[in-house]
């Protein structure tokens, strides 16, 4: 119940944050502009609208996850609002989970709004809407959850600016981890071992990317989808657990 109160308060905080609306407006503009851009292409404009639309949702969602996510905890510490929470009968992990859940709700609402924007555009342009689109959207949301947990983890021990840089780096690296394995395959045993270790430690965010599948009408089985979601959930749980451990030992000066 305490986690939920903190989550709802965080959600309310996000709703009253101008940054969120700016990002949301830009996302909707991008999705809408895909219609204009598709005019410039010869045929295949379905693909362009889908690719650009899903890309925009992903990009702006990640921006929200990072830039709102890093402030979740560090802003509370900087503004000293956390003093009044921790001195109440609220365990620190409850505070952390509440903040996380709050932003997750915000991101969910955002994803729904952006997805509706995309559906309107698709419908208006008479692009066939397939089930695969919804699977892709679901995995985009799972990726947001992982990124938010990364941002939260960094913000438990470092400043907002550094958390933003680290999380952004993690996002970029997370999409390139497959290259680590390819790279390792050409190295000696020790280097391969190290690179493989890093590969498994970092989140493999490419797993959540189904844009290609949607555009090229490829299928992903239900069991594969569940496996990817389970991977995202496990990774998120691992990040939140680590964040709680760090947060528990922290002094609020």
């Amino acid at each position: 119940m305490k986690i939920l109160s903190i989550a709802l308060n965080t959600f309310r905080e996000n709703l009253r944050d101008k940054l969120l609306y700016n990002l949301l407006v830009f996302a909707l503009l991008m999705i809408g502009s895909s219609v204009l851009l598709s005019r410039l292409t010869l045929g295949e404009f379905h693909r362009l609208i889908l690719d650009l639309g899903l890309g925009s949702i992903n990009f702006f969602g990640v921006l929200i996850a990072i830039f709102v996510g890093i402030g979740l905890v560090s802003k509370e510490i900087e503004k000293k609002t956390i003093y009044t929470i921790v001195s109440k009968p609220v365990a620190r992990y409850q505070f952390l989970l509440g903040k996380y859940l709050g932003l997750t709700i915000t991101l969910f609402v955002n994803t729904v709004v952006m997805a509706l924007g995309l559906l309107v555009v698709l419908y208006a342009q008479a692009v066939p809407i397939e089930g695969m689109l919804f699977k892709a959207l679901a995995l985009i949301f799972v990726e947001f959850m992982v990124i938010t947990a990364v941002a939260l983890l960094f913000s438990t021990f470092t400043s907002a600016t550094l958390s933003a840089i680290f999380t952004l780096a993690m996002y970029v690296v997370g999409h390139l981890t497959a290259d680590l394995q390819t790279f390792g395959a050409k190295m000696d045993d020790l280097s391969r071992g190290i690179l493989n270790g890093i590969y498994y430690l970092l989140p493999n965010l490419e797993r959540f990317n189904l844009k290609g599948h949607v555009v090229h009408h490829l299928e992903v089985s239900g069991s594969d989808l569940m496996l990817i979601i389970a991977y995202g959930a496990t990774y998120t749980a691992f990040l939140l657990f680590t964040a709680s451990l760090i947060f528990h030992r922290r002094d609020f000066r």
């Binding site: 308060n9 309310r12 905080e13 009253r16 000293k80 609002t81 003093y83 009044t84």
Partner: peptide, 11 residues
């Protein structure tokens, strides 16, 4: 508890 120069959720 009331902290020193408190900052609260101003929204």
């Amino acid at each position: 508890f009331l902290p020193e120069s408190p900052y609260f959720y101003d929204y």
